[in-house]
Design a protein around this nucleic acid. Structure first.
Lengths: 337, 337
DNA sequence: ATGAAAGCGCTAACAG
DNA sequence: CTGTTAGCGCTTTCAT
């Protein structure tokens, strides 16, 4: 890389001291000699000088960079959230470093460590939930920190999330309204509060309707095992007539299985999934979705974080910012076969 | 934020000098007293010392951070590419700052400037193509730089891309093989080489088949105008029986129009698009896609960049790394209405 | 085998 | 109004 001009270069060319140039750069040129100012400007232009943010960061203990840890950027939720955060950052001249923890505690830890080493000004994390000590450390070190999507109980960390129980409730209610009585529920492990709450909403809706929750219709585990377990569920004496997918990844694993078994949707089985499915409004079969306002959630998280970084809000409060799930019932596609 | 321990703290606790600790940290403890070493280790552990990457970066003029500028992270191609780059970076303990230029020259410039200020070690850019001077500057300043997806002619910058002409050729050929003769081609402005080449492939396929390319079937412009222009195209005397979308964004704008006009796919119109459409294999109508191996392309770009950063390859060579398009013909979905 | 000292590029008192 | 000075936390000769 080629040598870049420094403050020192600018200063000597303009025949002033570095501090004067520094003042200028930081907008403190109220009482600055008009001539001095002109010379500095000229000098900066001819040298094409650009301040070195690393040096400034070292001095000011502030990098205008934040760390984002998402589950997996390939998921639509993470993508939209990242985009939202990036947009807000851009607006305030911040930068975001995005990391994929893949629901892996080790990776999450490694990323947090690396980001700390890089002296990020704060974090937005979709926590795996598997590193409570780490989160607590972050808090004790007074890092501005916002959780997204998932909540870690008993840690006073502001959290932006969906009303997950409500989402689950609406999902089941929607299907009940269509006279489904045997509704399967397929999810990744119910260890994460988000998933658990959605499931609880489902349970509650069934109970309210006086319908027994049958364990045999429920799966909460490694979705790579679905090859074995889903067929079991579908072959019960009274097979489910409807199926809820806990998120878009679940859907992704469920679809091939249904396809292989030649199950028609929605005749044989009604399908409902959480999260957004791109283009779903144009396709048959109609898949009802319960979407999260992911972009808005990302904006909210970013704004909360920047407030905290800039001292406009106190960190150590357990606040929850909950968003409404959006049920999208698709009319049958017009693009039919 | 709470005060973090520094090298100095570690050194005094261990009763050695900073330089010794620094040696230790950088793995140069060949001839280091076993006892000294033990004390340093102990000291680091009790203080939970973590080196400050900003300070190190300032000194070493290396930040182990690279800048990525994509078109829009909400597009599948960008998402997959970002994920791939991030994976490779993680492997080599690098970090990526991802920015969305939104095909906007101003934003692209601003991001490049910000990333330079942050002293990134290199760039991977999906260039808007609108800032040739900037790219040239980057080159002259000897920044390691890789272009992705799009090529900027006459600049010796390694570029990872799809065989776009081939992709266009295959697209048209596939439809010709199904006896389509009137094939519409809808694209964003053909100013970007990627789009132009795809279109050229389409033209060539038609010419090879002895079919005249009718201008009235071709649209290359702002896809927000499609509301007006697409209906025109569909209402010709001999309307197209097939339609090619230049990328997934085009598809996204085309679908609502087709839906509103109640056009059945594929009976009234066969649809083919470049880029991946998630879940498309499970949906009706069947949309044939020509996918890019986006993840692999991202990996390639990241590897090329890291090689250059670490001096294992020279920058200033115009090399093109071209990937094969993947035609995916969908069998009619089993999940039918 | 270890330490002293200089300096990366910038900012922030404090003088003058 | 502008300059001097002292670091931010780390690495790196160069001595010892």
């Amino acid at each position: 890389m080629i040598k870049k001009p420094t403050l020192h270069d600018v200063a000597s060319l303009a025949s002033v001291s570095q501090s004067t140039v520094s003042q200028y750069l930081n907008g403190r040129y109220k009482h600055m000699g008009k001539e001095t100012r002109r010379r500095i400007e000229h000098s900066i232009n001819t040298l094409q000088y650009k301040p070195n943010a690393v040096a400034r960061g070292l001095k000011q203990k502030k990098t205008t960079t934040i760390g984002i840890i998402v589950a997996n950027i390939l998921h639509r939720f993470s993508t939209q959230v990242s985009r939202a955060i990036e947009d807000i950052c851009h607006q305030f001249e911040y930068h975001a470093i995005i990391c994929n923890a893949d629901d892996d505690a080790k990776k999450e830890k490694k990323y947090i460590d690396m980001l700390k080493a890089k002296q990020v000004d704060g974090f937005i994390i979709i926590p795996t939930g598997l590193n409570e000590d780490l989160y607590k450390d972050l808090l004790e070190e007074r890092y501005p920190l916002i959780f997204l999507d998932r909540k870690v109980e008993a840690l006073p960390i502001p959290t932006v999330s969906l009303k997950n129980k409500k989402a689950g409730y609406e999902a089941a209610t929607h299907l009940l309204d269509q006279n489904h009585r045997n509704i399967a529920y397929i999810s990744s492990p119910l260890t994460v509060n988000t998933r658990k709450e959605r499931y609880q909403g489902y349970v509650q809706a069934l109970e309210n309707a006086g319908i027994e929750v049958k364990e045999e219709y429920v799966f909460g585990g490694d979705i790579n095992q679905l090859n074995h377990t889903l067929p079991d569920i579908l072959e019960k004496n009274h097979p489910p007539t409807a199926l809820i997918c806990g998120n878009d990844r679940v859907l992704k694993n469920v679809l091939p299985i249904l396809k292989k078994r030649d199950i028609s949707i929605p005749q044989h089985l009604a399908l409902l999934t959480f999260d957004e499915v791109e283009f779903s409004e144009f396709f048959t079969p109609t898949i009802t979705t319960i979407e999260q306002p992911a972009y808005e959630m990302g904006v909210q998280a970013a704004e909360l974080l920047l407030q905290r970084i800039n001292g406009k809000a106190e960190q150590q409060r357990e606040e929850t910012y909950e968003f409404e799930p959006k049920l999208k019932v698709r009319e049958s596609s017009l693009l039919k076969k």
